[in-house]
Design a protein around this nucleic acid. Structure first.
Length: 424
RNA sequence: GGAGAGAUGGCUGAGUGGACGAAAGCGCCCGACUUGAAAUCGGGUAGAGCCAAAAGCUCUCAGAGGUUCGAAUCCUCUUCUCUCCGCCA
């Protein structure tokens, strides 16, 4: 949800932003509806004021006849209000529906573009890995080392699932522990959130208007499976008024994530690059509006630190307006070089959703400045580690000529005694 | 799954048909006293909507509907929380 005042006051800017985000929206019709709505509210409220006034006078009346007349008069007003309210309800419903269709406005510095092809590659970091042999892709490596079994997973669960095995499992827990250790030091509160959430929560995070196809739903219990712990951590504080001194309120969540991957038939069909279920360590922050861009840069910095400490070669990509998704106002992706597959692949991303989610979920804070009063917070999210893809990146980048894989130095304290994964 | 109790402002908590958007306390803000602070004293302090804004008005006591001239208070449904019992990793 965006601030309606913005649309009223900057209709042209708003139209431009919708176009940039590639969302069709009849702004003129909406503004007309909005005007009509406000006129009706005024009419109803003045009638209600009269009703309240007349009604409060009843206690003073002694004469039964006068009293009866008065009540009749009030009933008349009541009926008129009832009729008007019926009409207003229709308008309100449409108004709200339209408001919910509106995506978040991109920040000023986000480039206008259609999609992936218009994203901006900001810079490359790290060293390009050099091999004096032909590096294998992760599918070959995991097969040789027996780290991932997708064939049996297909038997049990279908396509796009996998059994993580042996050292891959140890790597998963090492990555989790590494991320938690690092982020707890930065005042992140660790949390293992629910993976099933109510419609209200999922809606509030802004993923139901577009992208519903991507989400698992359990109709019997009316619960949605999260696609990222962001969807479960964001609504933690819904309907709350936070204290300014508690902001930024940072969480680091660990959870399994579930995605239908409905629109991706044929893409990455082998292996575990794109699966229905994976584990992820996620950062989330509730921040003061004036600091949210700083917080966003901080998240990007942390994500880069993780990749640097793992010694990976990556590039920073800034999303254009067409590739933002509904809730985000600004978003970066980090893409790691996979020498086996010979391509950059997205491993982490971070978004600033400004007040879009906070408005829907009514997450606010009380400002110390009495003139500001109560304001919506800004919400931000960022990946620490999407485990599956990180394991792939490590395997491809740390492979040796003899088929073994070295364990990155920073992870060794978390995977005691093991410095490399050797073929049997 | 069965039985019962409950949901009130930032928090605790009083309030069972009109004088209640709501006592009291805590917290917070402003002021006095103080070299400064604490303590003490005085004052202020719910949110949302309509309005350019102020004034004003409207709505909101978990949510939705209803009764009534009038509902935090009465009725119906829903959601959530707690207690007891059952089941259970």
């Amino acid at each position: 949800m965006i601030n309606i005042k913005f649309i009223r006051e900057n209709p042209e800017k708003f139209k431009k932003a919708c176009k940039a985000k590639q969302v069709l929206f009849d702004t003129d019709y909406f503004l007309e509806l909005d005007k009509k709505r406000r006129e009706m509210i005024q009419e109803i409220e003045s009638l209600k004021a009269r009703q309240n006034k007349e009604s409060s006078e009843i206690t003073k009346l002694q004469d039964a006849e006068i009293k009866r007349n008065k009540i009749e008069k009030i009933k008349e007003i009541k009926n008129r209000i009832k009729d008007l309210e019926r009409d207003l309800k229709e308008i309100e419903k449409e108004h709200e529906n339209l408001m919910c269709q509106i995506p978040n406005m991109p920040l000023e510095d986000v480039k206008v573009g259609r999609g992936e092809e218009d994203n901006e590659i900001l810079r490359h970091e790290g060293k390009i890995p050099k091999f004096d042999f032909e590096p294998k892709n992760y599918l070959e490596i995991t097969k040789r080392l027996d780290l991932i079994d997708t064939e049996r997973a297909a038997r049990v669960s279908g396509s796009r699932f996998g059994y993580l095995k042996k050292e891959a499992v140890l790597l998963e827990f090492a990555l989790i522990q590494f991320a938690l250790d690092t982020l707890i030091k930065k005042d992140f509160i660790p949390v293992v959130p629910p993976v099933m959430i109510k419609e209200k929560a999922m809606w509030g995070m802004g993923y139901l208007e577009r992208g519903k196809e991507e989400i698992y739903y359990l109709p019997k219990d009316r619960l949605y499976l999260i696609g990222t712990s962001e969807q479960s951590i964001g609504p933690m504080h819904m309907n709350e008024i936070l204290k300014e001194e508690d902001l930024p309120l940072r969480y680091v969540g660990f959870s399994s994530c579930f995605r239908r991957e409905a629109g991706s038939y044929g893409k990455d069909t082998k292996g575990i690059l794109r699966v229905h279920q994976f584990d992820k360590v996620e950062m989330f922050s509730f921040a003061l509006p004036e600091y949210s861009q700083k917080e966003h840069e901080f998240f990007l910095f942390l994500e880069e630190e993780f990749l640097k400490k793992l010694g990976l070669y990556y590039r920073v990509v800034k999303m254009c307006t067409g590739d933002l998704g509904d809730p985000a106002a600004s978003k970066y992706d980090l893409e790691v070089w996979l020498p086996g597959l010979s391509e950059f692949r997205e491993v982490t991303s971070t978004s600033n959703c400004t007040d879009f989610q906070a408005r829907r979920l009514k997450i606010r804070y009380k400002s110390k400045d009495p003139r500001l009063g109560i304001q919506f917070v800004h919400t931000l999210n960022g990946t620490a580690f999407a485990i599956g893809r990180m394991i792939i990146a490590i395997l491809e980048n740390y492979q040796q000529v003899d088929g073994s894989v070295k364990i990155p130095l920073v992870l060794q304290p978390y995977i005691k005694g093991i410095t490399e994964i050797k073929p049997k």
